[in-house]
Design a protein around this nucleic acid. Structure first.
Length: 144
DNA sequence: GCCAACGTTGGC
DNA sequence: GCCAACGTTGGC
């Protein structure tokens, strides 16, 4: 399975809303690199949920439950159908200890993360090693 | 609130 | 096809 990180501004869509909704379409991606990453997601892949702008921390974990399909929030006539895509993600659990961006930047093993190197990319790949380390830093434990 | 990074647009 | 201008994102 692959690992990812998705970003959201809490003002637009927060982790609290994700938890309340449980399953949520991840829409509004309008960047070709991010789209490529969405297209590569498989059901069962996991992703960190990152709050940008205000909090700047990884706050939770979600699982991909529906692979890429045409983004319904694309306005009619604004482009060919399927020009942009979204996936559905399901809440897995909250980070017991949110991992702040500053901590990630202070960790040499995480300095090469796409999140750090390309700050504007809203859907980033995460390597297995990075995922394991971040789970450790966040005191993540599988629910159930 | 400012600024750097980056994508997009439009003139040539 | 190049590049300057502009808009957006997101960290600080």
């Amino acid at each position: 399975m692959a690992y990812w990180l998705v970003k959201s501004e809490p003002d637009a869509f927060s982790w609290a809303e994700q938890v309340a909704h449980d399953v949520e379409p991840w829409t509004g991606v309008r960047n070709h690199q991010a789209k490529k990453n969405l297209m590569a997601m498989k059901a069962g892949d996991r992703a960190f949920f990152y709050h940008s702008n205000v909090q700047r921390a990884i706050v939770g974990v979600v699982e991909v439950v529906r692979e890429a399909y045409p983004d319904p929030t694309v306005a009619d006539g604004s482009g060919p159908k399927g020009a942009w895509v979204c996936v559905d993600v399901k809440t897995v659990g909250s980070m017991p200890r949110p991992v702040a961006l500053s901590e990630i930047k202070d960790t040499p093993a995480l300095a090469e993360m796409a999140l750090v190197r390309q700050s504007r990319l809203s859907v980033c790949p995460v390597t297995q090693a990075e995922w394991a380390l971040l789970c450790e830093m966040g005191a993540w434990a599988e629910p159930g």
